[in-house]
Design a protein around this nucleic acid. Sequence first.
DNA 1: AGTTATTGCTTAAAACTTGAACCAAGCCCT
DNA 2: AGGGCTTGGTTCAAGTTTTAAGCAATAACT
Lengths: 172, 172
Amino acid sequence: MTTRWLTPEEQRAWHAYLAASTLLEDALDRQLQQEAGMPHLYYAVLAVLSDAPDRRMRMTDLAEHAKITRSRLTYVVTRLEKDGAIRRENCQWDKRGSIAALTDEGLALLERLAPGHVEAVRKSVFDHLTPEQVGQFEEICSAIAAAIEGEEAQRNAPDDLPWRRRSCSSGQ
Amino acid sequence: MTTRWLTPEEQRAWHAYLAASTLLEDALDRQLQQEAGMPHLYYAVLAVLSDAPDRRMRMTDLAEHAKITRSRLTYVVTRLEKDGAIRRENCQWDKRGSIAALTDEGLALLERLAPGHVEAVRKSVFDHLTPEQVGQFEEICSAIAAAIEGEEAQRNAPDDLPWRRRSCSSGQ
DNA sequence: AGTTATTGCTTAAAACTTGAACCAAGCCCT
DNA sequence: AGGGCTTGGTTCAAGTTTTAAGCAATAACT
């Protein structure tokens, strides 16, 4: 099949997105790096953790919520543990498991950082969008996220489905 | 001043954005990494270059267009030069200057990669947006990009504006 | 019970990014 | 011309990310 190129409108949107997302990531990183010597992702991980029941989560769950790989998370948690913001605990039910728990110190850090971070997000994003645009933005981003997570689900399923391969092909 | 937190709508939009942008970046990286052994950014740099007049650009210009730091670009170009996709040339008018030129090989590479990349962008993004949403997306992203570039301009200007500081404040 | 997957997480090496220094070339002033 | 400042670009060390192994515990099968 011959390639369906992007329409001019799509191209404009794509360029704008590329610019916005890299600039935004940089801006947030810079702000938090100055404020706390940590990149935005690390703050995000702390934030996810702070919303979890009992402020603790299994590594894999945490990785999924933060949309990052497990190995990346291992690194992040190791660093934050050195900083004293997170403590690792052993999982009782599953002895392989590891649990990341937000310490009081970590919570305090997060609370100290939150205002500046929110302010940065406002200044870069929400101060410049109308309420309708905020809604549109959410819909669009949700659609994108859903699409990609759908693809991934497919990519990870192809083989290990016991049905499908075994039967069905007998008629071929 | 007391912090203006995000409204629930803004929070939802922000979460959706965070998820979408990280997933998207990962998806594009993975696709291009498989296809060509290079991350998305490297492709983007080649693409910018291919649109430039005569397919060559000063390093600083290229960095600005790609929204990355000069030092990051130096690294990228060095790698792509090793791959044979880019050649460095000396600038005639300004002997400090360095020019990145897309080679024929680089252009061929780009053309080989383009269909798969566009397909990935479609699958992840545009196949799931209505035409109206494409327009909204562009507006929103442009607003964000403009906001951040505006801030940066301010951050880099603060001192060296001869006017402003001198006059104007006399009436205060 | 005894393999054989699978899952949860970590590790190690290579690739990439960042930020601060650095150097050379232009610029501006007298 | 001779200082000092700015600009264009690179370099280096430290930090981060990725990928592919790796290891241990669990689940699944027979």
